[in-house]
Design a protein around this nucleic acid. Structure first.
Length: 450
DNA sequence: TGTTCATGG
DNA sequence: TATCCATGAACA
């Protein structure tokens, strides 16, 4: 049976009807594009791409292709890239889902020769040009883009966005982020304001499993689950924990494990993160591990397994019990119901059964807030307008004179009013604000003290 | 059309 | 059964 999601309560029906209405109003309002910047940046990007191409043509590995086949190498034909690298004797382990050798960013980064370096840079600018610039340009009408926000296209009950996708504009890579987000600007005399829920999915998960340890992490600001997990993983005492070590603990262990990863897979990624990390006192992490009985991969793997067992069986034992109960209830019934009133049915993998209700409900919190903010802005006769949302954040165009009022209102709705509406939310939700200076782009947003 | 890659949460 | 969700571009 195919996987499906249906609203089971009147409240859930209303949420999606109001949601569809408010999201389409945001689409209709649209976001403004800096047209001069668009054509200028596009040209600049093309120039960069041209110069990378001429540099690649000078590299001997590239010449292998032309001398062998007499035609032009296609930088996006992975078979061709693979052929050239293999011919030069490079080997690696990573494979694609279908078992072929992968030639993705991770693999090319590790090979680290001029050819792969240039190729990576080419891919980056090609992505900018052919996905982002092209997508925005194709959908710009009189200087505005009216993205679609869909409520019917995901299995988890989240939204999606198309033409162009507003939900995957570059930000992690600053250079790419600058090219694209600089194009998205507020209307005259306005700010772009983005309000983000802090760790929303983690908090919503807590509402389902109600693990007391996690409740403590979510409510006591002196605690930090990523720090604690990282201390265990690398045997680092609290006073020597660095941001970088915590970063790897968080992103290579805690999050993967919440999504259902296993210690064997985490250990590999963690082990590769060690070089380049140091304790606060300057000791290289590799040296620190050597001195603490974790000098080789086998002992590190055994250690990660024991941290994993402690993580699920001791620290989050109640969470673990919830996972078992939730999954077996699904096995018995063939469906499960979210706290937001949606029924998920059909054949689902274990990890999906455990993740969909959390991912879906987290989004529903944002959607409820999105609708409520839209309604209240109307009612109060304010000029601020919502222009989009990205799973756990809400983006608005806000006149300078309404900045404080908008943030106060939206924050109140997203935290207090939402929690009054849904009593099952048992940990205090928090939001963070980013604001662009008046008339400045989305790229220039800065943390804003609420 | 399915696969792989890249972007975001 | 083993890391969840999405869109979009290009190749084969």
């Amino acid at each position: 049976m195919p996987v499906s999601i249906h609203p089971k309560t009147q409240e859930a029906i209303d949420l999606f009807l109001n949601g569809a209405d408010c999201l389409s109003r945001a689409s209709q309002f649209g976001f403004k594009i800096d047209l001069d910047k668009l054509s200028e940046s596009k040209l600049e990007c093309k120039k960069v791409l041209d110069s990378i191409e001429s540099e690649i043509r000078e590299i001997d590995i590239y010449k292998d292709w032309e001398s062998e086949y007499g035609n032009k190498l296609s930088y996006e034909a992975n078979d061709q890239i693979l052929f050239l690298l293999k011919k030069r004797g490079y080997t690696w382990d990573k494979v694609t889902k279908k078992g072929k050798d992968a030639v993705d960013k991770e693999v090319l980064t590790k090979i680290d020769i001029p050819f792969t370096q240039k190729l990576l840079r080419w891919r980056k600018f090609n992505k900018l040009l052919n996905t982002y610039f092209r997508g925005i340009e194709a959908e710009t009408i009189n200087g505005y883009v009216h993205t679609n926000f869909l409520l019917h296209s995901t299995v988890s009950g989240r939204s999606s966005s198309t033409d162009p996708n507003f939900q995957n504009m570059p930000i992690r890579d600053k250079e790419q982020g600058k090219y694209i987000r600089s194009l998205i600007v507020p209307r005259g005399g306005c700010h772009i304001v983005e309000l983000d829920y802090k760790a929303l999915e983690v908090y919503i998960a807590t509402c389902y499993h109600r693990d007391p340890t996690m409740i403590k992490y979510n409510t006591d600001p002196t605690t930090d689950m990523h720090r604690d997990a990282s201390m265990d993983l690398f045997k680092v005492p609290i006073e020597e924990m660095s941001d970088k070590i915590r970063y790897f603990g968080k992103n290579k262990f805690v999050f993967p494990v919440f999504y259902g990863s296993i210690p064997e897979n985490c250990a590999k990624a963690l082990w590769e993160s060690v070089d380049g990390c140091a304790l606060k006192n300057g000791t290289p992490l590799r040296l620190h591990l050597n001195q603490n009985g974790l000098a080789d991969y086998d002992s590190f793997l055994a250690h990660v397994k024991s941290v994993y067992n402690k993580f699920w069986n001791e620290r989050f034992a109640v969470y673990t019990k919830w996972k078992e109960k939730w999954y077996w209830k699904y096995r018995d019934n063939g469906y499960f119901d979210s706290y937001t009133g949606f029924r998920y049915s059909g054949e689902m993998k274990r990890n999906a059964v455990l993740n969909y209700p959390i991912q879906g409900s987290a989004f529903h919190c944002q959607l409820w807030s999105f609708c409520e903010i839209t309604k209240r802005l109307d009612k109060l006769g304010m000029k601020s307008r919502l222009i989009g949302q990205i799973h756990d954040s809400i983006i608005a165009n806000v006149p300078e004179c309404e900045l404080e009022a908008y943030i106060k209102l939206a924050k109140e709705i997203m935290t207090k009013e939402l929690m009054a509406h849904w009593k099952w939310i048992i940990v205090p939700l928090e939001v963070e604000a980013d604001v662009s200076p008046v008339n400045c782009s989305w790229f220039e947003k800065k943390k804003y003290k609420i």
